[in-house]
Design a protein around this nucleic acid. Sequence first.
DNA 1: TTTTTATCGATAATTTAATATCGATATTCC
DNA 2: GGAATATCGATATTAAATTATCGATAAAAA
Lengths: 210, 210
Amino acid sequence: MTGHGVSRQTLRRLPLYLSYLKSLSEDAPDNVSSTGIAEALGLNPVQVRKDLASVASGGRPRIGYITRELIEDIEAFMGYSVMDNAVIVGAGRLGKAFLSYEGFTNYGLNILAAFDADERVMGMEGEKRILPMDQLKEFCQRMDVRIGIITVPACAAQQVCDLLVDSGMLAIWNFAPVRLTAPSHILVQNENMASSLALLSQHLAARLYK
Amino acid sequence: MTGHGVSRQTLRRLPLYLSYLKSLSEDAPDNVSSTGIAEALGLNPVQVRKDLASVASGGRPRIGYITRELIEDIEAFMGYSVMDNAVIVGAGRLGKAFLSYEGFTNYGLNILAAFDADERVMGMEGEKRILPMDQLKEFCQRMDVRIGIITVPACAAQQVCDLLVDSGMLAIWNFAPVRLTAPSHILVQNENMASSLALLSQHLAARLYK
DNA sequence: TTTTTATCGATAATTTAATATCGATATTCC
DNA sequence: GGAATATCGATATTAAATTATCGATAAAAA
């Protein structure tokens, strides 16, 4: 369980529900059942009900949930109404891709700028600026940034992490393929591409060579 | 458990062990203990031993594991010696970033080319080519591609998925924020950025507003 | 040589997550 | 109005994953 009486796994599924609910067209019926959601997302209906019970105001027998209310409840719970400011460190390809990707704002993430050690990449990327590292701390404090996104090579990641912590971050989203260490009150979320790849290639090996 | 007597979670941790083991410097002792690994990666030592027991040839009391042998065992198990060919569909920012990212080859993934529906993006990205969609199927069959990476917008993802399945893919790595449906023998691995973000923002909300 | 210690591997206990079952209820159909 | 049905929510069960315990053992120390 996390602090809110919602399990980690449930929390991971909430965005799935949200995106499914939002994808329902305007002229769909304005209610939706746990069975329907489960079927669309490949989940177990009981699991869906349990997840929803912990964040939404409740469904009704024979009717299910009112789609609009359900969306509002999930969004309210996840705090998508509040925008969290974030910065990217590492303006390589991945960093730049994130910097100009609009989609994060749908999830309450407002990426303000990127920082990099390499002078040559300074400037604009789309609407947003790429700044030198020595401005990071002051920028984050001035703009009240609490989320740092790390897209530097593995060898530089821990150093960047330390700097981000020192600059006041409370959560760090790490795309470098290393495990970072940080004080316990900081959440370090490792986006583990290699782990996913392991599952993929294992599946492939099982398919092809057995 | 997966087909190989190794749990899904274990499989996800193996790349972590591998990258840690490889990060040990040349002049480090040539053995390593489960305790040491666990400490470095923030895991439980029993868990580490259990994971390793299922893929490696075994450690010795008081000594631990021989680092070099352990690396070999894990790599052998994960099949990193074999390169799997892959293509990207969607040559937007994320797609291009992947296309020119060298790091995937370390994990046995060989990205050959990208495909896109937009004529204007055709051409080269670094060493690799961006080709029109109508060449996808023929290319995949000719080059024996078995992994498809989807980096198109959500609305196009299912259509692309169907096309990839039809082109002979056995595993699909999906970065679009939708749940894809595919025949049961195809592995669809959803890289769920929104899920990770949910954890981040939840942590932040808990920190800031409680 | 004997004792101590770090370590593994096996088994047991615990925790967490997923699924099944079932009674209650609101709507629809007869 | 009464029966049938789809649905929820609660509770119970099962499964999976993690963590704890403990005996065995090989190296190091005494």
